[in-house]
């Protein structure tokens, strides 16, 4: 990374966060709520995106989403902790640890083996979650009101504070992930999809790259699950169900893999779609969802963000070309 040049992704992330914070009071609470839910979906989807860059499709990120959500609910209930930031951090660490352990097993698998093993694990977790009494069975658990570094909002303020909290957690984690992906180690992740043997000849361990990518994806999904639990103030075994993991895949498919910002667009779109679809055609939701996925796979496999990136690079190219062409025009 060249330190003196401005990083547009970080600038854009901060701009979104600041605009959202300042504008939060001005928008209706239901839009704030959708935004809040999108941050949680977006974080988990960033994890799916990282794995997909390595050529690995995980159908099991819902497992860590579940770990994150339930870590918050259980610690708030039995540990009496009400500080949102502490809870999210603990949830992310718990999910990261779980991913590090499972990743040891999965790091040797690729392709459909990886996809189906992650799917199987999340289905095992789901069936455990519906049966264990500590987890509240299929009803799930409720989560009480939170405090934010000593600030204890009540009533309408609580929803506002919760929104701003989610936005900044998302921003902070997205910046960290962006820095990781820009680092030398992060650059190895897409290389796994390209050619594994070449990485090994360069002196890196492919296994370790996949393991780290899986751990980080798990941690992000855990943080996402924690935010989802805090937003809805309720967690249930549906967090672990494979359709939840399918949602993250949809988001990445829709928005593409160009940057850590992309999944946020897809996630916001998904939440809007979900809230409208459940009102307009509640019984055909899966059909609409599946048909959209098929349409994207068939007609725009690179994702919508490719269009933005293409336009942006075209604009920059034109701007970079202009003085050059003028100079050439003068000399000739």
């Amino acid at each position: 990374m060249k330190g003196h040049r401005m990083d547009w992704t970080i600038a854009a992330l901060l701009a979104v966060a600041i605009v959202a914070t300042v504008g939060a009071a001005g928008v209706p609470s239901w839009i704030r709520y959708l935004g809040q839910l999108s941050t949680s979906t977006a974080l988990a989807s960033v994890g799916v995106m990282i794995l997909l860059r390595a050529g690995l499709l995980s159908f099991g990120q819902s497992l860590f989403y579940f770990v994150g959500g339930y870590a918050v609910a259980l610690i708030a209930r039995y540990g009496g902790v009400t500080d949102a930031l502490a809870l999210v951090m603990v949830a992310a660490i718990a999910a990261g640890l779980a991913a590090a352990i499972i990743g040891q097993l999965l790091a040797g698998y690729r392709g459909i083996f990886f996809s189906m093993l992650t799917l199987a694990l999340s289905m095992v977790m789901f069936s455990v979650a519906t049966k264990v009494r500590l987890f509240g069975g299929s009803d799930g658990l409720n989560i009480g009101l939170m405090s934010y570094l000593g600030y204890r909002p009540r009533g309408p303020d609580a929803q506002w504070a919760s929104f701003v909290f989610c936005i900044w957690v998302w921003t902070a984690l997205a910046i960290m992930t962006h820095a990781f992906l820009r680092s030398r180690f992060g650059a190895l992740i897409p290389a796994v999809a390209d050619n594994e043997i070449r990485i090994e000849y360069l002196g890196y361990s492919v296994r370790k790259v996949v393991w780290v990518a899986y751990g980080i994806a798990g941690m992000l999904a855990g943080a996402g699950g924690a935010l989802a639990g805090l937003s809805a103030r309720h967690v249930d075994p549906q967090f672990a169900y494979w359709t939840t993991a399918g949602d993250f895949i949809f988001v990445v498919l829709l928005s593409g893999q160009a940057s850590v910002l992309s999944p946020a667009l897809g996630a916001f779109f998904l939440e809007i779609l979900r809230s409208y679809a459940s009102a307009l055609f509640p019984d055909q939701w899966q059909t609409a969802f599946g048909a959209m996925m098929l349409a994207i796979v068939l007609f725009l496999p690179a994702g919508l963000d490719r269009l933005i990136v293409l336009i942006w690079s075209a604009v920059r190219k034109i701007r970079a070309l202009r003085p050059h062409t003028l100079e050439r025009g003068r000399s000739s």
Partner: peptide, 15 residues
């Protein structure tokens, strides 16, 4: 790519 085909059959499953 394999993930894309997997996603397509997943979408078909949903429909």
């Amino acid at each position: 790519p394999e993930p894309l085909v997997l996603i397509a059959t997943y979408a078909l499953f949903l429909v």
